[in-house]
């Protein structure tokens, strides 16, 4: 990201306003029993760039992520996506509007082929309607177009030799790639990646990073959850750091690297090693 990008003049402050944000969050809270898992006062996710959501384990990143995608309901708060109300909206509706997510533990569809995984993601398919499904001529052309796009994407993600394999037969890294390719198949405007590099070997990490930057270069916005600092510094344009459910810092990677609150949050909690209280 060049220094003269749209975020060049934005101050590194929590809740700072950005030019033309794609996602705007206000007062979102989520409690589990007595525990406040997420408590975000105001956050704007910029458009057309890669935003990283970081924080130590148990910071509430994934919970926040699930709330934004409609997979969990908050106790309070609202947010908009592309200027439209997005709080209380069902996840599949958000996905159709262009907010497409992946999962921390990949959710490839095991007993479906790689190609079927891709085709499933095609947007607004006529053949998904019950009665039209019985009349193939009404959806055959669309299917052919989707097929072509799916093959293109699989080629780009170097999965084309696995087209007819069952997804469950893929390695962990291949599944991450497939999930990302599938998300692209759904023609998103905002790609939400939940720890896309988790459990992936270093060589594949490089390739995944390349794919993520390519998304931005094609004009999509990316919001991804990650806790590997190296990854974040390499590719993100903007970083949001959470701890104990709150946003404690925002800024360009360079701003975050020197932020005292972030350093304290990371050092204050045992990072790495055992799995600690990540809310699931």
């Amino acid at each position: 990201m060049p220094a003269d990008g749209p975020l060049a003049d934005v101050a590194a402050e929590v809740g700072v306003a950005k030019p033309d944000p794609i996602l705007v969050v206000d007062g979102v809270e989520r409690r589990y029993g007595g525990l406040m898992a997420v408590d975000v006062e105001h956050l704007e996710v910029p458009r057309g760039v890669i935003t990283a959501l970081i924080g130590p384990n148990g910071a509430g990143k994934t919970t926040f992520f699930n709330l934004l995608c409609g997979f969990d309901r908050p106790d309070a708060g609202r947010w908009t996506f592309q200027g439209q109300e997005a709080s209380g909206v069902k996840p599949h509706v958000l996905a159709r509007r262009g907010m497409v997510r992946t999962f921390q533990l990949t959710k490839t569809l095991g007993r479906m082929t790689v190609l079927d995984n891709m085709l499933l993601a095609g947007k607004d398919q006529a053949g998904e309607a019950f009665w039209r499904a019985l009349v193939p001529p009404t959806w055959r052309d669309q299917e052919a177009a989707n097929l072509e796009r799916a093959h293109d994407l699989l080629g780009r993600f170097k999965l084309d030799h696995l087209t007819d394999e069952y997804a469950a037969g893929l390695s962990g890294g291949q599944r991450k790639l497939l999930e990302m390719a599938r998300a692209l198949m759904a023609e998103p405007t905002l790609v939400m990646l939940d720890e896309p590099m988790a459990g992936v070997n270093p060589a594949l990490t490089q390739s995944l990073l390349g794919h993520v930057t390519a998304l931005r270069d094609e004009g999509m916005s990316v919001l991804f959850v990650e806790h590997d600092m190296d990854v974040i510094m390499t590719i993100s344009d903007w970083v949001v750091c959470m701890a104990e459910g709150r946003v404690i810092a925002e800024g360009r990677p360079a701003d975050i690297a020197g932020n005292d609150a972030v350093i304290e949050a990371y050092l204050g909690i045992d990072h790495g090693g055992t799995v600690t209280g990540e809310i699931r």
Partner: peptide
């Protein structure tokens, strides 16, 4: 749906 004493389902 979560029953009398059940908690709202969590998602991870």
């Amino acid at each position: 749906p979560q029953g009398i004493l059940g908690q709202r389902e969590r998602f991870g």
